[in-house]
Design a protein around this nucleic acid. Structure first.
Lengths: 198, 198
DNA sequence: AAAGATACGGACCGTCGGTCCGCTTTGCAA
DNA sequence: TTGCAAAGCGGACCGACGGTCCGTATCTTT
């Protein structure tokens, strides 16, 4: 019924905006000093077009984030182990967190932009909702876990964009160190004692 | 040598501003819709005065936060157990985190304002620095902890203002439930298996 | 080809953090 | 007490940003 397909210039402009925003965020020192006008300019597009396509700044950032996250989401939903659904929880949870950490390391500025969108709690995005639900269900299948819901939140909190930025960007912690630290922490929480760095 | 004492109207106005800001934040639905002009008005003071006294919005929020946090800080620095310095780490760490959680529950809007100040990473405040250092040193004295620095960050991340707001405000999780969940999580991380809710 | 729908784009608007500067208050000293 | 800097005041003012509006250009359909 409804659901008409968009005009072709619309899709072209949308793509241009996304691409422009991506490079602008990547090059910026802080997401805050990338303005909508900047993005519109860089994309060769009017500001109105941006807002028509994405609603508002948050919408644009979310769309961009979604695009970048897509491969990972696919790997999680229907990929091979250790990310895919065939993996047993005790192994999958650490793998998921590690993947998420790597993603945020590779997209620091973008993740920062998403989580720092001011009033909008990062907890209201459905990206977050999805990760949380997935993690909670996995944790639920693990023994001795008192509250999977809260534990999932707490584990995800350890990969918050601004924390990652603080450690990796400002304090220069090397990537592998960070991964090892998160892995150790995760193991601790899961009660998996033996695990060490690969 | 320098370090002259401020004039008395200055101190009076400063206090008025702090008080006004406090109630305004407490009554607001989101910290973002409390503007500097609002605060100035409510305090019966010019906007310029606000900026002279606190530098900028962030400065005001930090000052206010510091004021509110003072009692807790004192209790931690030189109070009786379980918060004070005489307490052994395994007992003190959970107590600290619980106290911090309670503080954020009691000052939700303020904490949200502080952590959500946009560009300024919450990790650059010296409030955070202090808590992190304290926690790290305590964890350092505990056995089997691979990386006290990261673990401290991760534990603190579990009490982030927006997470607390999400759980307590939006999803209506009762205070005691939250405290129990955090306690359980902390125990898990510390490797204290026996602990249950009081 | 013609018409109707859809999208474009940049001038425009309201708001907010922050600055500026002529005026008032305060505190010190004679 | 009176005089007089210096410190502080406050609100008009500014620049920037997110978001809107609407006359115009472009696409799609018949």
């Amino acid at each position: 019924m409804p659901e008409r397909k968009p005009r072709k210039d619309a899709t072209r402009n949308r793509a241009a905006a996304l691409a422009a925003a991506d490079t602008l965020f990547a090059d910026s020192r802080s997401p805050e000093d990338v303005t909508m006008a900047d993005i519109a300019d860089a994309a060769g597009v009017g500001k109105g077009t941006l807002f028509r396509a994405f609603g508002d700044r948050t919408g644009l950032i979310r769309a961009l984030y979604g695009t970048r996250l897509e491969p990972l989401a696919a790997a999680v939903e229907s990929g091979p182990p250790p990310l895919g659904p065939a993996t047993p929880p005790a192994e999958r949870v650490p793998a998921l967190l590690d993947a998420l950490l790597c993603f945020k390391l590779d997209n620091r500025h973008l993740a920062l932009a998403l989580e720092g969108t001011g009033a909008d709690s990062p907890y209201r995005t459905d990206h977050y909702e999805q990760w949380h639900t997935l993690l909670r269900d996995l944790l639920h299948r693990l023994p001795d876990l008192a509250d999977p819901g809260f534990t999932a939140h707490a584990l995800l909190a350890a990969t918050r964009a601004d924390l990652v930025e603080h450690l990796a960007g400002e304090r220069q912690t090397p990537r592998e160190d960070l991964r090892a630290q998160l892995a150790a922490f995760t193991a601790r929480v899961l009660g998996t004692p033996g695990t060490t760095t690969p």
